[in-house]
């Protein structure tokens, strides 16, 4: 097991670099536009890694929580234990969880993903259940009365009507995961946390890496929102 800091060794600011009068700015740990422009490509790989960490965690987390929610939807007694279990996972601080997992799964992508996935579970599960509970009872009754099978009621009526709530959960999970993935480098999984931690006092570095995180969160948030709007045209139909 190597040192945490060794991982970020690849990202070391070259204070002497920079052609013109930028040296002074860099030496002052300032916000240096030309340094950012020259060194932006250093952030591409961590950003790609960050996107990968986030998207994989969201896809796996969504699959697990959605399946759990469908299971608990018809067996209500399952809701409380699932909420409590995922609640404990959600409570364990991410940093602590990385280190608790290290002896079991070692450093790397897998450990980071286990931790990131475990944080999405409670959020998505809770929202899917809330969404399904919010489906108007009369629509379900009418659907059954018209001869839709249980499976058809679920997929043609309940899930479509729960979509806004499900999407809301996915949005919260997405922004949360982007933030938590900045800590994934502690587990040796890279991401934008790498450059941030490598040079905490250099404003240019922190602003670019942090800014990319926020930007990624906003982009993912908007993507989910866009998908939701395309999938739920009825929510925008003005009332007569």
């Amino acid at each position: 097991m190597s040192l945490v800091l060794a991982q970020s060794g690849g990202f070391v600011r070259d204070r002497s670099a920079g052609a013109s009068g930028q040296d002074a700015c860099v030496a002052r740990d300032g916000v240096c536009p030309s340094w950012i422009a020259e060194n932006f490509d250093r952030y591409v790989e961590p950003l790609q890694r960050h996107v990968l960490l986030t998207v994989v965690a969201l896809v796996i987390g969504f699959t697990i929580s959605f399946a759990l929610a469908l299971l608990a939807h018809r067996r209500r007694w399952l809701v409380t234990p699932i909420v409590q279990l995922t609640g404990i996972l959600y409570t364990i601080p991410s940093l602590a969880l990385f280190f608790l997992l290290l002896p079991l799964t070692g450093r790397g992508f897998l450990t980071a993903e286990i931790a990131l996935v475990s944080y999405t579970l409670l959020i998505i599960f809770r929202n899917v259940i809330t969404g399904l509970d919010g489906v108007p009872a009369d629509a379900v009754d009418a659907a059954r009365g018209m001869g839709l099978t249980d499976r058809q009621v679920l997929w043609k009526v309940e899930i479509p009507l729960a979509l806004p709530e499900i999407a809301a959960g996915l949005r919260i999970a997405a922004t949360t995961t982007v933030g938590l993935a900045t800590l994934a480098f502690f587990a040796g999984a890279g991401g934008l946390g790498d450059p941030i931690y490598a040079d905490l006092t250099f404003k240019s570095n922190v602003l670019v890496a942090g800014g990319l995180c926020v930007l990624l969160a906003v982009v993912l948030d908007l993507l989910v929102l866009l998908a939701q709007r395309l999938l739920t045209p009825w929510t925008r139909a003005a009332t007569a």
Partner: peptide, 8 residues
Amino acid sequence: RAVPSLAL
């Protein structure tokens, strides 16, 4: 939520 705690 979007601002990573580490970045903050």
